[in-house]
Design a protein around this nucleic acid. Sequence first.
RNA 1: GGAGGGAUGACAGAGCGGCCGAAUGUACCGGUCUUGAAAACCGGCGUGGGCUUGCCCACCGUGGGUUCAAAUCCCACUCCCUCCGCCA
Length: 435
Amino acid sequence: MIDLVQLRREPDVVKSALARRGVSAGVMDAVLALDVEHRALLQESERLRSEVKFLSRLVGEARREKDLETANQLAEKSRQLGDEERGATEATERVGALLREQLLSLPNVPAPFVPDGLDENDNVELRQWWVGKDEGLEFPTYAEHQRVPHWEIGTELGILDLEAGAKLAGSMFPLYRGDGSRLLRALGFFALDRHRDAYEEIRPPSFALTETMMSTGHLPKSADDMYAIERDGLWAIPTAEVPLTSMHRGEILDVARLPIRLTAQTACFRREAGAAGRDTRGLLRVHEFDKVELFAYCTPEQADGAYADILERAESLLQALGLAYRVLELCTGDLGTSSARTNDLEVFSPGIDRWLEVSSVSWYRDFQARRANVRYRTSDGSIALVHTVNGSALAWARIWATLVETYRQPDGSIILPDVLAPYLGGQTTIGVRTS
RNA sequence: GGAGGGAUGACAGAGCGGCCGAAUGUACCGGUCUUGAAAACCGGCGUGGGCUUGCCCACCGUGGGUUCAAAUCCCACUCCCUCCGCCA
């Protein structure tokens, strides 16, 4: 949620910032008008309330002095005012709810340097990385045996069984088996271990309350993109960002504790409601995938550092795995609702000849903290909203796909990067022919 | 799933219709004293909102209700604790 006080104080600044994200001036003016109306109603209902309280005190005093006649008169007057107040309060709440609803639907103010644009085509590529780039090597040319899509490799080696997954839960619910399942497990352990030096590992619930979903901005906007368990009022989390952002909901943190850095691997559930028919093959787009998330609660001053650290860690994982990738600065049109700035990492998948998003690092400024009411006490005793920053490191389904394609050998087997060996009992090959 | 007990400020813990936004203690901040510290003493010490910046309003788990007036009474829900049952 954006800052209403700021909107009130510098409407033109906020208006022009949100105009970059396609919010019309008319919408903003409507919000401002609601705010004016709300405050006027609030003043009136508070005035009435104050009077009722004052009269009630007099009733008590009159009673104590046994002046029942005065007491009854005052009580009658107070009752009338009370009726009036009830009406005023109802109106105030109705307008307040409307205002809040409008405010919740507004996106975050983008960082000044975020490029203008309509959609993903206007994102700006910042850099690319591949093995040997520093030594002057060109972008890798992939051989024929690497130009095989992962779903074919998976079937051939018996490590990915999409039909079995579909049988159990419908299409786009993958089932990994044998060494494929072990590889997935290894990737998660590998990443979590690398973040252990600075991030506390969390294993949160996979479901969250509506209130929790509101905090991150996933509700009310993205309800159709999430799985709901209506009977119990729960939603399946689309990312660990959801529980991590709400871990300190409603708290006032001591500034000495900041930044609080957390990491978690969870299953991520996505209905992909708007993506029917797109990227349906293999692991490109699935309803459930595992992802390690990095997260930080911090002061505004710490936000840049926290952001850089998360981005660096995500890149470092890709480099350790030897996968070619590029870094994008998302344009205003492709930015998530809650985000002020986002960098996507896309890995190059040779089997399908495409860049695949495997990480998204975002700075939310105080947008989520305002919804979730996460604050901190500064050294001078005042209270301010924290900033939240998070990023994936990494989303494993697409990494899994890219790994088996990139490291496929002429004989069809896979030789994995050595860094994974400790997590695979020393094994680095899949599908080696022993004969 | 059954029975009972509970939820009050950072923490502990009073209050159980009327100056109660809330006693008291601890912690914390400032001061006096001291060479310094501790102790002692004095003062301060929740959050959010509105406007005429001095006042007003809201908040005692959550949501309703009763009343002139609710932390206090009634109803529902949530969570925690104890016991029983079931269970990986």
